[in-house]
Design a binder for these strands. Structure first.
Length: 597
RNA sequence: GGGGUAGUAGUUCAGAUUGGUUAGAACGCCGGCCUGUCACGCCGGAGGUCGCGGGUUCGAGUCCCGUCUACCCCGCCA
């Protein structure tokens, strides 16, 4: 006996049939969407990833399959053989295949389906946790199918562009040694080496540099990376980078290549001409004007420093802050003096307190006077000075934070985003790129110096002398690509001189012994004729998220994890057998309140 | 580690302010009718550990304490 599939191959997909196919006999395979039973006449929407075709079961045509047709239920996987016919006067202009329907003469049920836990349709109301538990069903929905197909397209466009531009793709180890800097590592115990561990890569950074030393010139890899840190809407513990490295290049060369790649991706996905070169902003400028190093440039609401204007203010909160060496900065919200109630302003104040601000001072600019709790403390001279800096008009709302530079930036930077959302200032169809350049080489955390990017980043040539005297003033040859307020890529020119690399390790508080233990292979390799090189890594998930208009990278990852880093479908992580632990030379040391689940 | 929001039929929610008879609706599901539907329509029906544990009370979906899970944010993310 032959099976249905042996007798009938799929001739078309469900989104394909048009008026021109009328009269053809076709074989379609897919899933039952809606079935509408009108008594003797039954309509079934047959769905696959290409779209939907309406099947019409009419006993005049095939009496013998009508009972089976009536028994069809949602999400059954079936096949039909039938004739494509016109819908005549009953065309459905809302669907691409709406001119036609298929009259099945044969019906094969491959698999029946349980009633799904949520209805499979484009717009679902089901909560995300339920959908994650049955991800294979959620992935039947069109928005997720489109997102993953876009992701596949980005993969292909990336490979094509880079291969065409002389890049070669290499794989690097997933099982690697743990290195001290950066994020927390995911560790893998070694069975063969008792007590020792591999680490999963946070990025293939050192390996790609070693490939440059080997002479491969132009490397790329689309690669999974792992960081054991807390999750966010745009952060997963495993994520995908488009990893790129080039030899004999300046930052300009890397940037130019990236702009070409991005343009190719946007053209391929959205048929959109991306304007290059992209806007550039130094890190200092970005922090001053936007408060963050990933500014959303689709709207204004820039931040203004008014410290000088209020240094001698009667308003002690302002003058005292400036006297301490901290800053007073503000945002002018044009024409919104009447747009915010006292209650609204209280809410804005709560939102800046999250970032450490003590409060949010506000002024409503009237036609001939300023109003608000602090207005009386601001004299004419101060008002004029503030006006000169912020360009004030009657009807404006002014918002101020007095705090350390760090807190002022963070609070106003995020207030700026909140305001834009509230005032609906963001054009969701716009893609606005910006390079952030000249990052500081180091940042100080609790008195210790840490690399802002990573310890292989090269300082600016002209700042090299500052390494010994004023390390916090040293600028790095590092650049981030920001799109609509998301960092979608970051890279740098790397250190190619062994003595400079050793010096950086030393500055980071690493002894020679420690540096040799952890990075000896890199320091050795740098001794053998290292080309100047640099590169970048793009966050694929974030890029696809923005390309598809998703608001979380979970929507563009086939099987993502929850904010507790769990896979609700596979129930990972999980306990393991005692035998497995034994083999790996591991013994659990759980505290009383940890039961290992 | 911290802050916020949510958890009640299969699903999405209402019910909680003011503790009190039998916890409702819509969608979905099941059955019946229906030959042009495409959010099909009409009639009928089934379906509940009110997240979990404890407490207060004559009585708890409702009040109190604890806890779990999901989401958003801070910290963290070279």
């Amino acid at each position: 006996m032959t099976t249905f599939l042996e007798e009938h191959g799929r001739t078309h997909v469900c989104g394909e049939l048009r008026a021109e196919h009328i009269g053809e006999t076709v074989t379609l395979m897919g899933w039952v969407g809606k079935h509408r039973d009108l008594g003797r006449l039954t309509f079934v929407d047959l769905r696959d990833r290409s779209g939907i075709t309406q099947l019409r079961f009419d006993p005049h045509y095939a009496e013998d399959i009508h009972d089976v047709a009536d028994s069809l239920r949602s999400e059954w996987c079936i096949a039909v053989v039938g004739e494509v016919v016109s819908r005549g006067a009953n065309k459905n202009p809302d669907m691409p295949t709406g001119d036609v329907e298929v009259l099945p003469q044969k019906l094969e049920v491959f698999s029946e389906a349980d009633v799904p836990p949520f209805v499979i349709r484009d717009e679902t109301e089901a909560h995300e946790d339920l959908r994650l538990k049955h991800r294979y069903l959620d992935l039947r929905r069109k928005p997720l199918q489109e997102a993953l197909l876009t992701r596949s397209k980005v993969n292909a466009l990336t490979r094509n562009f880079l291969i065409d531009n002389g890049f070669a793709e290499f794989e690097t180890p997933v099982l690697n040694r743990s290195t001290p800097e950066g994020a927390r590592d995911y560790l893998v115990p070694s069975r063969i080496h008792p007590g020792q561990f591999y680490a999963l890569p946070q990025s293939p950074q050192i390996f790609k540099q070693l490939l440059m030393i080997s002479g491969f010139d132009r490397y790329f890899q689309i690669v999974k990376c792992f960081r054991d840190e807390d999750l966010r809407a745009d952060r997963q513990p495993e994520f995908t980078q488009i990893d790129i490295e080039m030899s004999f290049v300046t930052p300009e060369d890397v940037i130019e290549t990236c702009e070409g790649l991005i343009a190719a991706i946007f053209e391929g996905v959205h048929d959109l001409d991306v304007e290059a070169p992209f806007e550039r902003l130094s890190y200092d400028q970005a922090m001053l004007r936007f408060g963050v190093d990933n500014p959303d440039m689709r709207f204004g609401l820039e931040i203004t420093d008014i410290s000088d204007a209020v240094a001698d203010s009667e308003f002690r909160v302002f003058s005292g802050t400036v006297a301490r060496g901290d800053v007073v900065r503000g945002i002018r919200v044009a024409g919104e003096a009447d747009g915010f109630s006292r209650n609204d302003l209280d809410k804005l104040e709560e939102s800046v307190k999250v970032y450490g601000a003590k409060g949010l001072a506000w002024v409503k600019v009237g036609d001939d006077d300023w109003k608000g709790p602090i207005a009386n403390f601001l004299g004419d001279a101060e008002r004029e000075a503030i006006e000169a800096k912020m360009g004030i008009e009657p009807g404006d709302l002014l918002l101020f934070v007095a705090a350390s530079e760090e807190v002022a930036c963070a609070s106003l930077g995020n207030l700026r985003k909140d305001l834009a959302a509230k005032l609906d200032l963001i054009d969701e169809s716009e893609f606005r790129f910006c390079w952030i350049t000249d990052f500081p080489m180091f940042e100080e955390i609790d008195g210790d110096i840490h690399p802002m990017h990573h310890p292989f980043t090269s300082p600016h040539a002209e700042d090299m002398d500052l390494l010994g005297t004023d390390p916090l003033a040293v600028r790095a040859q590092a650049y981030d690509l920001v799109l609509n307020g998301h960092e979608i890529g970051g890279g740098s020119i790397r250190i190619h001189r062994q003595d400079v690399q050793a010096k950086i390790f030393e500055m980071l508080g690493m002894s020679d012994e420690e540096a040799n233990d952890k990075f000896g292979f890199l320091l050795d390799a740098l001794q053998y004729g290292t080309p100047p090189h640099g590169g970048i890594a793009f966050g694929m998930d974030r890029l696809v998220m923005i390309l598809t208009g998703a608001d979380s990278i979970r929507q563009v990852i086939a099987f993502p994890k929850t904010t507790q880093a769990s896979d609700l479908m596979a129930s990972a992580p999980s306990d393991v057998d005692a035998d497995q632990l034994e083999e790996l030379h591991l013994r659990l040391a759980l505290k009383d309140d940890e039961d290992g689940e």
